[in-house]
Measured scan of single mutants.
Amino acid sequence: ADDEVAKLLVDAYRKNDEDKLEEVKKRYNISDEQVKRLIRKVL
């Protein structure tokens, strides 16, 4: 599931889509710190 979330985050990140990032964060209840970590893992 982590990889799936990471893909969604990276996708939103690449598109610079703040709304999507927020949506994913809320849906999976993850912190900014986790977001950064997941994005770093993929990029």
Rank of each mutant, 00 (worst) to 15 (best):
A1D: 13
A1T: 13
A1W: 15
A1S: 13
A1V: 15
A1F: 15
A1C: 13
A1I: 15
D2H: 10
D2V: 10
D2S: 11
D2Y: 13
D2C: 15
D2M: 14
D3T: 09
D3P: 09
D3V: 10
E4S: 09
E4R: 10
E4T: 10
E4D: 11
V5F: 07
V5E: 02
V5M: 09
V5L: 13
V5D: 02
V5T: 04
A6D: 05
A6Q: 08
A6P: 03
A6L: 14
A6W: 13
A6C: 15
K7N: 09
K7R: 13
K7C: 12
K7L: 10
K7M: 11
K7T: 08
K7I: 10
K7V: 06
K7E: 09
L8Q: 11
L8R: 05
L8E: 09
L8V: 06
L8N: 03
L8A: 10
L8G: 02
L8Y: 03
L9Y: 01
L9S: 00
L9N: 00
L9K: 00
L9P: 00
L9H: 00
L9D: 00
L9I: 13
V10Y: 14
V10H: 08
V10K: 05
V10D: 04
V10L: 15
V10Q: 07
V10T: 08
D11N: 04
D11P: 01
D11K: 03
D11G: 01
D11E: 12
D11I: 03
D11W: 02
A12Y: 07
A12K: 00
A12T: 02
A12E: 02
A12R: 00
A12F: 05
A12M: 03
Y13S: 03
Y13C: 09
Y13I: 14
Y13Q: 03
Y13W: 15
R14N: 12
R14Y: 14
R14A: 10
R14W: 14
R14G: 07
R14H: 12
R14T: 13
K15V: 09
K15G: 09
K15Y: 08
K15N: 14
K15M: 13
K15W: 09
K15R: 13
K15L: 11
N16C: 13
N16V: 03
N16P: 03
N16R: 11
N16L: 06
N16G: 15
D17M: 05
D17V: 03
D17P: 01
D17W: 05
D17N: 06
D17C: 04
D17K: 03
E18D: 10
E18Y: 15
E18P: 14
E18H: 15
D19S: 12
D19N: 12
D19L: 13
D19P: 07
D19T: 12
D19E: 14
D19M: 12
D19I: 13
D19H: 12
D19A: 15
K20E: 11
K20F: 10
K20W: 07
K20T: 12
K20H: 06
L21Q: 02
L21S: 01
L21F: 08
E22G: 06
E22D: 09
E22S: 09
E22N: 13
E22C: 08
E23Q: 10
E23D: 08
E23S: 07
E23G: 04
V24C: 02
V24W: 04
V24T: 06
V24E: 00
V24L: 15
V24K: 00
V24G: 00
V24N: 00
V24F: 08
K25G: 01
K25S: 03
K25Y: 01
K25Q: 06
K25M: 08
K25A: 05
K25I: 05
K25L: 03
K26Y: 05
K26N: 09
K26D: 05
K26H: 07
K26V: 08
K26P: 00
K26M: 08
R27L: 12
R27G: 03
R27S: 06
R27C: 05
R27A: 10
Y28F: 12
Y28P: 00
Y28T: 00
Y28H: 06
N29G: 14
N29L: 05
N29I: 02
N29V: 03
N29Y: 04
I30F: 07
I30W: 08
I30G: 00
I30K: 02
I30S: 00
I30A: 01
I30N: 00
I30H: 00
S31P: 05
S31A: 04
S31W: 01
S31V: 02
S31I: 02
S31N: 09
D32F: 04
D32P: 05
D32A: 07
D32M: 05
D32I: 05
E33A: 10
E33P: 03
E33T: 06
E33V: 07
E33M: 06
E33H: 05
E33N: 06
Q34C: 07
Q34E: 15
Q34H: 08
Q34I: 09
V35R: 01
V35H: 02
V35K: 01
V35F: 13
K36P: 05
K36F: 04
K36D: 14
K36H: 11
K36Q: 13
K36W: 07
R37P: 01
R37S: 13
R37N: 13
R37H: 12
R37Y: 05
R37M: 08
R37L: 07
L38E: 03
L38Y: 04
L38Q: 02
L38A: 05
L38K: 02
L38H: 04
L38T: 05
L38V: 09
L38G: 01
I39Q: 02
I39F: 03
I39T: 01
I39E: 02
R40Q: 14
R40W: 11
R40N: 14
R40P: 03
R40E: 15
R40Y: 11
R40T: 13
R40K: 13
R40F: 10
K41F: 07
K41S: 12
K41V: 08
K41Y: 08
K41R: 10
K41G: 11
K41M: 14
V42E: 11
V42H: 11
V42G: 09
V42Q: 10
V42N: 07
V42D: 05
V42A: 14
L43A: 06
L43V: 07
L43K: 05
L43T: 07
